[in-house]
Nucleic acid binder design. Structure first.
Lengths: 109, 109
DNA sequence: TCTTATTATTGCAATATTGCGATGAATTCA
DNA sequence: TGAATTCATCGCAATATTGCAATAATAAGA
């Protein structure tokens, strides 16, 4: 025990949870906000920006890449990162749909 | 080491990450979806609904309550749960704002 | 009161995540 | 070629999360 029992839930539920997990760390939020702010390919300065060790930053970048949220392009000796607008839009739509329209007249007990 | 270094990031970044973490588990997604679908106070049947042990379900409900997303009202021997529409709306707005308007002309390398 | 039903809490084991130093791979420049 | 630079990966330690059995707490009904 200790591992999430993904088989108990629908693919959609697992997907949403997985996507939430991808942004469930302040370092990854910071990375994404920085890339969005720059709105361009960013090479190198991410480690200085975060304040975490290079290995740790690289790990977070790897997770964001695995989630599809960012792309990394090798540019000479360094690597350039940017938002993947296609996946970003998917996230936007999915979370928007998830939080859509709860009947706000909380007819609770 | 092993603990998230929250002091390196802004309160906003930590908040977003924390909110994402609250929904970063398929069981919690399933609970929320069920409550939204019923759109009412739900007593008792959550354990049967999920397929997880009672203790585990209770733990997830506790986390959702801690996140503010649901309310629990004692109703006799059982407890009724429902979405907190106020906090729900906050989540909706926050994620909407976060994923807002990336310039989609991926001017990447 | 005693039993039953329902939920919370405790304590533990298994697994996942976070963070970093050390090392490796690839590129640039002297 | 030989540094120096940049980033990824490995291996480890610390911490967090997940899951459940056992138990406690509370309320309803016999």
């Amino acid at each position: 025990m200790g591992a999430t029992k993904t088989d108990l839930f629908t693919k959609q539920q697992n997907d949403i949870a997985q996507m939430a997990k991808a942004i469930a760390h302040p370092a990854r939020i910071a990375i994404l906000q920085y890339l969005v702010k720059k709105n361009a390919c960013v090479c190198g300065d991410l480690v200085d920006e975060l304040g975490l060790a290079q290995a740790t930053t690289s790990q977070h970048l790897k997770e964001l890449k695995a989630a599809g949220l960012i792309q990394g392009t090798i540019e000479g000796a360094s690597v350039c990162y940017c938002i993947d607008p296609k996946i970003w839009k998917q996230y936007q739509q999915l979370f928007s749909a998830f939080f859509k329209d709860v009947n706000l007249d909380g007819s609770c007990c």
